[in-house]
């Protein structure tokens, strides 16, 4: 029974200075193949919350279970857990000292997941999936933002993760690039990838997510299906936020 969920966050607390909490007891359960979009005003702590899920941010209290392993337990090797959690960043963070292909094969090869030849074959497969295979041998710095982000998604997928975390993946993109990246993400969702997405793309959230979480004041204020959140918000903060973003 316990193993049903993919990710379970319970009573998560985090502060940077030990005094002011940015996350004040957040809870979230994500089931396998579920797509959860986290929306909310800037500064509400939603990115920090996401970054706690692969421990890029340390947290002081609470538990995060990924595949049944507690991130709060120091006995669990965080590197092993991270191998199973793909992360896509707002600013892509591709390695500029390597080609696109090397970006993708680095971790699988260095962590002994596969030999170099297999890794290269796999990399091409993922590059085809994000429609970037023709750029396999170029340096990432020569690519547009949208192209870089698609490579970054391929890089995360190459580790064959169980969960993918997206931290505002389209916020740094020119508008005409957003569609390509969202399409790749939709494709992933369709294939049954478990995804947690922090986003400002309300259309995407509405269309793709199984659940939408409204993050406000360091907690998940409201959680529900896209219809529940977008069409029948219960909390006044949710209403006022949606009013602002949808009628902008």
């Amino acid at each position: 029974m316990e193993e049903q969920y993919k990710v379970k966050v319970s009573d998560l607390h985090k502060s940077y200075d030990g005094v002011h909490e940015v996350i004040k007891g957040a809870n979230l359960t994500v089931m396998p193949s579920e797509v959860v979009c986290i929306i909310g005003p800037s500064g509400s702590g939603k990115s920090t919350f996401l970054r706690c899920i692969n421990k890029l941010e340390e947290f002081q209290k609470g538990h995060i279970f990924v595949d049944g392993k507690d991130l709060a337990d120091p006995k669990n090797d965080i590197n092993k857990i991270r191998e199973k959690i793909g992360m896509v960043f707002q600013h892509f963070n591709l390695f500029p000292n390597m080609t696109v292909l090397e970006n993708i094969t680095l971790a699988p090869v260095k962590l002994g997941k596969m030999d170099k030849e297999t890794a290269i074959k796999e990399a091409h497969k993922y590059l085809q999936m994000v429609n970037m295979d023709d750029k396999a041998d170029v340096r990432p710095t020569t690519l547009s933002g949208g192209q870089q982000q698609r490579v970054a998604i391929a890089r995360a997928l190459a580790m064959k993760p169980d969960v993918m975390l997206f931290d505002e993946p389209t916020s740094a993109l020119d508008p005409e690039m957003v569609g390509d990246v969202l399409n790749v993400m939709k494709e992933l969702a369709k294939e049954g990838m478990t995804m947690i997405v922090v986003t400002h793309e309300m259309g995407f959230a509405k269309q793709v997510s199984d659940k939408v979480a409204f993050f406000y004041g360091g907690v998940i204020k409201e959680l529900g299906t896209p219809e529940e959140i977008f069409d029948h918000p219960q909390e006044p903060e949710t209403k006022s936020f949606l009013d602002k973003v949808l009628n902008a």
Partner: peptide, 22 residues
């Protein structure tokens, strides 16, 4: 850029591997 660290670590690379390779 600290993002380089984060990207490398998020892939599961241990600290010194991330340092050395990235």
């Amino acid at each position: 850029d600290v993002g380089q660290w984060e990207a490398a670590r998020s892939l599961g690379l241990p600290y010194y591997k991330a340092l050395w390779k990235v």
